[in-house]
Design a protein around this nucleic acid. Sequence first.
DNA 1: CTGAAAGCGCTTACAG
DNA 2: CTGAAAGCGCTTACAG
Lengths: 360, 360
Amino acid sequence: MVQSKRKTTRLIDVARVAKVSCCVAGHVLNGSRGNSRVSLQTAQRIREAAQQLNYQPNHAARLLRGKRSYTYGLLVASAGDPLRSFLVQYLDAEAVKIGNHTYIGNTIGNPSVGPDQFDAYVEEFARRQVDGVFCAVHHWFEEDRQALLTRHPNTVFYEAPGIPGATYITVDREEAARLAVRHLAERGRRRIALAVMTLSRPTHLARRRGYEAELRARELPLREELIFNGEPYGPAFARCNVATQAWEFPHEVIDRAIEALILRGKADAVVAYDDFWAASLLTQLRLRGIRVPDDVAIVGYLNHYLADWTDPPLTTVDLQHEAAARQMVHLLERMITEGSLPESERVVKITPKLIVRKSA
Amino acid sequence: MVQSKRKTTRLIDVARVAKVSCCVAGHVLNGSRGNSRVSLQTAQRIREAAQQLNYQPNHAARLLRGKRSYTYGLLVASAGDPLRSFLVQYLDAEAVKIGNHTYIGNTIGNPSVGPDQFDAYVEEFARRQVDGVFCAVHHWFEEDRQALLTRHPNTVFYEAPGIPGATYITVDREEAARLAVRHLAERGRRRIALAVMTLSRPTHLARRRGYEAELRARELPLREELIFNGEPYGPAFARCNVATQAWEFPHEVIDRAIEALILRGKADAVVAYDDFWAASLLTQLRLRGIRVPDDVAIVGYLNHYLADWTDPPLTTVDLQHEAAARQMVHLLERMITEGSLPESERVVKITPKLIVRKSA
DNA sequence: CTGAAAGCGCTTACAG
DNA sequence: CTGAAAGCGCTTACAG
């Protein structure tokens, strides 16, 4: 065999076999500029030589010459997170479809790795010359997104980063609430309640807007007593107890919600804050002998894995991560190839989708 | 500022400011060989210059010169998978701890991306010169793991790849079954049943071995009627219905198991095949008015997200992905730095851990 | 001990 | 149109 002493085939090896210059071979095989006119015959000869020698272009050399890396950096606080994990999966899948690859950066906020991981990735991604960055770090991690954006102008966020002019996609929570209310109204529910966790964040306000708008559209009265704000009861998020490895959820706020909305408010349906909320509602309602969906219908938000395994399975709103990922890759590629997008095209709304199971 | 016309600082820029050669600067900043003796003072001056100019070594240039990439390739069939996603997370976290990064390759078996993804990643990882590969692709994907191993001798598998001499970690399923039986026996259960899906795969046989060994250790009789083999009822795996986005599970096999083990066998506990099995058992038992854990205790296997959200929450065996990831990174780093491991050190068993919730 | 110089494998401006 | 040559930013063998 030719070149058996080398472990890897270079462009020049192919060029020699095909009896052309590197210039021509590079143009045919790697699409580099240089010679634009090459006869079909020559091109074919070059390709055959490349195949015969199993030529693989050296990525580092192309990078060093200033070509793009065809690599994205992906920032996420925890790739194991049941929702973010799908974003990881779909983002990479969309990237691969157009020949790109993904560096994962998921140790943000992980105490076993150390502090400042966010900033470390920002630098590391720069060093490795990623073409752009996806940032899907939850808003409660107060990282320096502005520094990220300065170092990597080609960044697309999942959900608003709170930086004017940033490019991001966002799930339409107003529509999510409307979908839930619409479904419940169509199934004959008349006293539909809404649970939010605060009215100080725009995402929660959007839900309330959607809830109210759909009630109006259905000509159902808006009853203040059917809106529950969990804020006074502290943060109600599922969190993993490191010692027991179990996810825990503060039940008190759920009990207060049941009392306010169902016992006092006589709600026949609840649009829950999210699937954790909804799942806890299911359990607590059973303890009180309240049947779901017979007495009260429950709709969640997330379409988390658990939705299929609650009893009854949870009707919930899916966040359409695949569509979100597609949009994010599309936005980022445009930024890479066209440069900064016009203001009006920097925010893309994702329309969520109701998944009907048994709880409503 | 110095060098304001260039967008990026090179080693030579730092060297000039520090009034040394690239050689010395490279040695101090990037640990490259060359000058071994450099005065502390000079080193300090170089470091200051680097900091002042915000020098970041160019990754591509180092790679091109033959240094390692400090990058792992990670093959997984679906990064969104609730269990594999943790492996993705922990593997990257362990990698980052020692300064390495991870390319994700998760589109294997994804029809929307196209066929032959496994082979494509094998080539792409080679092109990008990863130092080693983690392969956590489920055994039912019949990919060419031998080709992977040929191209990337530094590969560590999650679970046995079926290739003699391969390096892998494996969860000790015998121990998993023993943990479950031990816990149940200690809680006073006397008629403990085991459900497997086949007796033709070694992992299922290992469970049976562990089950029998622990019964013996507890001086409980082994009753053949308390071992259920689901094989005749077809594959019982949870699978996602693409149209409805819901996870579906074949209930027939569960009904047969209830009839065989609980109704006829009078089992007071079931060691289920996995958490999906166990969750379905919980639902079907409730329908039949059989209480868990009062009448029958249930133990799962996986510690899947759903375990906290079944009703009652599921007592199950955790696969210890974090420990597995740590071992995988450790094995791979040894292979990279020391070369192929001695036969006796190529297989590492992970000891799983029982997580007690409410179902047992 | 020290630094100038070659070279990793590409791409591309440039001379023929 | 074509190919030789420079150069991307490092590392390291080698000459001084």
